[in-house]
Nucleic acid binder design. Structure first.
Lengths: 176, 176
DNA sequence: GAGACCACCTGGAAT
DNA sequence: CATTCCAGGTGGTCT
């Protein structure tokens, strides 16, 4: 089954000329590989300065991003590879990307997935908060956009979808 | 006594969002600390990439600027600290900043001073030249703005004020 | 040469 | 209050 890890609502900068995606720290430290955030960390811990992370989209196309920490702004970012993703997925501000881990019934071939949810005026949006914090969906498990909305994902919270006996859900489709 | 080193007439960019002040090269190389202008300069010459320069205004408030060379535009600039100066002095384009060195009668406590001359329509301006090159004053030693105009400073030229026996001039005021 | 990438910087907002 | 975070920037390097 797939487990939704976190969502990111895209800012103008995320899809603009800066060619980077800022990963909110709370998600970065929780779900992404450990990277060196500390100036004087040079121990055996195998903590590295940056790392290549690999995701798959719904078509199982592979996407690689350089994931690193910018000390000066104390922020976690995807750099290399992000621009291509934005262009080929035609991402715009307020679109939402969703990160999943795909756990295939105890098999060892877990992998990470990435998918996009294009912004629509129809989606209800919590007002008065910035994009990153205002993501939620009003539908009851209804597939609204690209056949891909997990119901009741609210307020940028990661929330596993419920398990289905005898199969698993992948991008809103039940696999037997 | 104080010695006027040079003037800079502020451009829109100097007071805008670029957060930098371009120092005309002729003044930078003549009056400011040597910084590394050359790609392959790595010798013992103690020439550094950038430097913090310290000035004092008429109230003896200290102002620090990062002074560095931008290879891409081949220009000498103040960066860090400049924006705060612009904001707190409420500088606008065509205002003029004046750099002084303050030489206290052979004492070793020389220091650099910075002051502002706010633009006024009354000031006659040489036409047809850009702001940086068109600075001059029409008054005959008359203090016009903020009690601070040194007379006959023309065409962006550095020109020492005449010495006064028994004291020195500081921001247009004779110190005994 | 233009664009992508890289390691920095900054101000405002949130905490 | 001070500190952290991060959206929006920068110049420089490489391709």
């Amino acid at each position: 089954m797939e487990i939704s890890l976190f969502l990111i609502g895209l800012t103008p900068s995320d899809v603009g000329k800066l060619n980077r995606l800022v990963i909110p720290k709370k998600h970065a430290v929780k779900y992404l590989p450990l990277i060196n955030e500390d100036q004087n960390e040079r121990e055996e811990g195998e903590i590295v300065e940056d790392v290549e992370v690999v995701f798959y989209d719904r078509t199982m196309r592979q996407w690689k991003f350089r994931y690193c920490y910018w000390r000066s702004s104390q922020s976690f970012v995807f750099t290399s590879g992000w621009k291509r993703f934005v262009k080929e997925k035609n991402l715009k501000e307020r679109d939402v990307i969703v990160f999943y881990t795909c756990d295939l019934e105890g098999q060892s071939n877990n992998f990470l997935m990435i998918d996009v949810h294009y912004y629509s005026e129809d989606d209800s949006v919590v007002t008065g908060k910035k994009v990153n914090e205002s993501v939620h969906y009003s539908s009851e498990g209804q597939v609204k956009t690209q056949n891909f909305v997990n119901s009741k994902l609210k307020q940028d919270e990661a929330k596993p979808v419920e398990e289905n006996k005898g199969g698993f859900m992948l991008f809103g489709v039940k696999i037997q």
